[in-house]
Design a protein around this nucleic acid. Structure first.
Length: 503
RNA sequence: GGUUUCGUGGCCGAGUGGCUAGGCAGCGGUCUGCAAAACCGUCCACAGCGGUUCGACUCCGCUCGAAACCUCCA
């Protein structure tokens, strides 16, 4: 299929045609989690956003190398225990090795991302495994004359950089503003300019995460790892760099500066940023103490939650919003997502499981919105609309809207036994296969563990119930239905007989 | 204060210079022993004030309000 994929490039603040540097290959780097806490809803947003990008690029036929890092070195904790990084701090509190913490939370992260049906990236490098690359990157920047050493720490020279390059290009910031608006920290006494950022920090004696370097025993600055690892696995220049909007400044801005000096190029062609999750209109974040972990969502064990929400409900909820919009959490919105997803999946079950409806070369399917005779089936139109939506900066909400129109058609056909062509029926199945399962990455949670025994038993039970219904023995009939309900098996009597499914 | 972004119906959320978003909820029907589901119909919008235009929810300006970033954060 001829595709013209447009994606919004933060660098240009415009939608641009996606033209990879080396087709058919596509390289994508996304900033991954710092593994010092349980994964929460905020972690799910970029994971799902770039999973969608990954899946769609693959669907279009690109050979994608998707790199997402694990930050297990930790970043500077500015407010207290100066210089001590997050992972080390947590390790000290919990009396374990820092790597034990990193391992534990990395495992937790994978567990919950798997539950959300987020595909594993091609490579998941760890910052701690790339200290050598980071040290050599610092050296390159020093050699180029854009960094300076003070007391064993190395800082990037923003002032010098700004004479030739534009620091603030990605985030739209101006250096003078940075100068006047940067908070004064004690550590900044070492810096020549308040906007300078650390490339290497000398470790204090009590700091347990440390590596030897030409300058001191210490640890790398927090912008360094992404530059080092993206270069290592994707080359000096690659196609897409992704991450949360909160990383725009200073993290991504500094990555650009580092690459510009060390490699003489801007690292990524397209910069993509997902927006934040809000809770009561406010950002959900660790420091705000208002975050809800994924485990809490899946179990319902949190005071803000009225009930548990399944992984696919969370995934669907996020895909119903565009990735560049903020998405506000509420129980009401999640319940709506849950019901909508069920409607989508039930229609799919009907499509593949029910006996074929009346097929007829003269389809009764008409576009309800337009009396015009189409040159092609309205179902083909919906199919095209799905591609058009994805090609327009991954507009998953519009894909979902088209899918619901398909649901409407499926229900009408089966409910009223309207005629449909064999081709249209196949097209519907194909549309669901590609968009619902392959691209949106949704799974059917309703009918996961049905066995042949269950099918056989249900046949038997429903036959007995049918007999009681024929003799108008409603007591027995309802008793069976109620008992099955308690086992989470829902029985529905329709015109064409009785249906059932496991909830 | 600066930077970026946003303000859509009861809720969540797309989109567009004139033509239906979609989901959930509500209301009225159809179907049904009842229930559920489904189907048909229906109500509720584009923060406010100006401007451009034949026409603006959509473009421009102002006002009000909100958020993120500027400090670790997805």
């Amino acid at each position: 299929m001829e595709s013209r994929l447009l994606l919004y490039n933060t660098l240009s603040r415009n939608k641009e045609l996606f033209e990879p540097l080396n087709p058919p290959f596509a390289g994508m780097y996304v900033c991954g989690p710092t593994v010092y806490g349980d994964p929460h809803l905020g972690h799910a947003r970029p994971a799902i956003t770039f999973d969608l990008v990954f899946r769609y690029l693959q669907h279009l036929g690109y050979k994608v190398r998707y790199v997402r890092n694990i930050t297990d070195v930790g970043h500077l904790e500015a407010d207290l225990d100066e210089g001590e990084d997050k992972i080390a701090k947590k390790a000290r509190l919990e009396q374990v090795e820092p790597m034990e913490i990193a391992q534990y939370y990395a495992d937790r992260y994978f567990l919950y991302m798997d539950a959300l049906n987020v595909k594993r990236p091609s490579i998941e490098p760890r910052a701690s495994g790339h200290i050598i690359e980071q040290i050599s990157l610092v050296q390159q920047i020093l050699d180029a004359g854009y960094a300076y050493e003070v007391n064993g720490s190395v800082y990037f020279d923003i002032e010098k950089y700004s004479k030739t390059y534009q620091y603030g290009r990605l985030s739209g910031r101006v250096l003078d503003d940075l100068l006047t608006n940067t908070r004064n920290l004690e550590a900044q006494e070492e810096k020549h300019h308040p906007a300078d950022f650390a490339l290497w920090k000398k470790a204090q004696p009590e700091h347990i995460m440390r590596w030897p370097s030409p300058w001191s025993d210490g640890f790398p600055g927090w912008h360094l790892e992404c530059s080092a690892m993206s270069t290592r696995y994707l080359g000096l220049q690659f196609d897409i760099h992704g991450g949360g909007m909160d990383l725009l400044f200073p993290h991504h801005e500094s990555e650009i500066a580092q690459s510009q000096i060390a490699n003489r190029v801007t690292p990524a062609k397209y910069w993509m940023h997902n927006n934040m999750i809000t809770i009561n209109g406010q950002k959900m974040g660790k420091s705000l103490g208002n975050f809800i972990t994924l485990e809490e969502f899946f179990t319902g064990n949190h005071r803000e939650l009225l009930k548990a929400y399944s992984p696919m409900t969370i995934r669907f909820f996020m895909l119903q919003a565009h990735y560049r919009s903020t998405l506000d959490f509420s129980n009401e919105a999640l319940e709506a997502a849950e019901k909508g997803l069920k409607r989508l999946m039930t229609a799919y079950e009907i499509l593949i499981k029910s006996p074929s409806p009346q097929t007829d070369p003269r389809s009764a399917i008409r576009d309800p919105r337009s009396p015009i005779i189409h040159r092609q089936s309205p179902i083909a139109d919906l199919f095209d609309a799905c591609y058009a939506a994805m090609n327009d900066d991954f507009n998953s909400p519009m894909v979902i809207a088209s899918l619901f129109e398909a649901v409407h058609i499926i229900n009408s056909v089966y409910d009223k036994n309207e005629s449909i062509t064999v081709e249209e029926l196949d097209l519907l199945k194909k549309m669901f296969g590609i968009f619902v399962f392959d691209i949106l990455g949704l799974k059917n949670e309703q009918s996961s563990d049905q066995s042949v025994y269950l099918d056989g038993l249900m046949d038997l039970i429903l036959k007995i119930r049918q007999k009681s219904r024929e003799t108008k023995d409603w007591g027995t009939s309802d008793q069976i239905r109620d008992a099955l309900n308690k086992l989470h098996i829902v029985v529905k009597d329709g015109k064409e007989g009785t249906n059932w499914n496991v909830e």
